[in-house]
């Protein structure tokens, strides 16, 4: 029997291909900007740059771990080894052709990273990891192509805005105005951290992408972009799951001829 080859997502249209791309851990996502690590730490607001990591338990090597086969089997992530706190970053993605949407974020995170806990809501996606691993992950997520300055927000609370019309500068609505539009540079600049506490410097995350570019990069099916119904394979896959779930409940394997 041939070895199982992992599959990610069906379909032939651009959003389907992009979904496959973000989920496949072998694909390195394009880096579009470089926000410094200190600025990423400031944006999250869990500690000050340069400050020691606070810990919630002694380093694993020091403490006496119980004799557990699973613990021997699983290599702990860096932060777990050192006993870091679990902290979070949360992204909000606009429905207006944001490069990625929350549900695919969950797929992407779970497919690409270890030792994480992620939660999906309609417009936002939280990810919880040990602090030092979180910082690396957050920097990657802010720097790479799944982030757009105008359509992705770094928001810990009061995330409302993903389904609102964009404002006159093309930015997603934010009741707490964590980021502002720099008219002269035509860039998006963060002035508050993810829970809207003012930060002492302005952090630029660069220029928003054009609509044409976003339509090529997005994982979102939209009636005014690529309609999901135009992708036969994606539609069939959705219908199949729906049918199996409806007819089979928790025993989809018992449903025949679907």
């Amino acid at each position: 029997m041939a070895a199982y080859k992992r599959q990610f997502y069906p379909g032939t249209t651009t959003p389907a291909k992009n979904r496959r791309k973000v989920m496949d851990p072998k694909v390195k996502l394009k880096k579009l900007r470089d926000v410094s690590m200190d600025d990423v730490v400031r944006l999250m607001g869990h500690r000050n740059p340069g400050e020691e990591y606070k810990s919630i338990h002694p380093p694993i090597e020091e403490g006496k771990e119980p004799n557990c086969p699973i613990r021997k089997l699983v290599e702990p992530i860096d932060g777990a080894k050192k006993g870091d706190r679990v902290r979070y970053i949360q992204f909000t993605d606009s429905v207006y052709f944001a490069p990625i949407s929350p549900y695919q974020r969950a797929w992407m995170y779970l497919s690409r990273y270890r030792g994480i806990d992620t939660g999906t809501l309609s417009g936002r996606q939280i990810i919880e990891v040990r602090e030092r691993d979180l910082e690396k992950l957050a920097k990657e997520m802010i720097d790479n192509e799944t982030f757009d300055p105008a359509l992705t927000g770094i928001r810990g609370a009061t995330v409302h805005g993903h389904a609102c019309r964009l404002d006159e500068n093309g930015l997603m609505f934010d009741a707490w105005q964590r980021y502002i539009w720099d008219k002269d540079k035509k860039e998006v600049v963060y002035v508050k951290d993810q829970v809207a506490i003012p930060i002492d410097r302005k952090i630029s995350v660069g220029k928003p992408a054009s609509l044409n570019d976003l339509k090529k990069r997005t994982t979102i099916f939209r009636a005014d972009g690529v309609d999901m119904r135009d992708d036969k394979e994606v539609t069939a896959y959705g219908l199949r799951i729906h049918k199996l779930r409806t007819l089979g409940g928790y025993q989809p394997f018992n449903v025949k001829d679907v």
Binding site: W176, Q177, V195, I197
Partner: peptide, 13 residues
């Protein structure tokens, strides 16, 4: 700000 750790701070929108 109506929630979060900065609750009560001016929003300055």
């Amino acid at each position: 700000l109506n929630s979060g750790p900065g609750k009560g701070l001016p929003n300055n929108h």
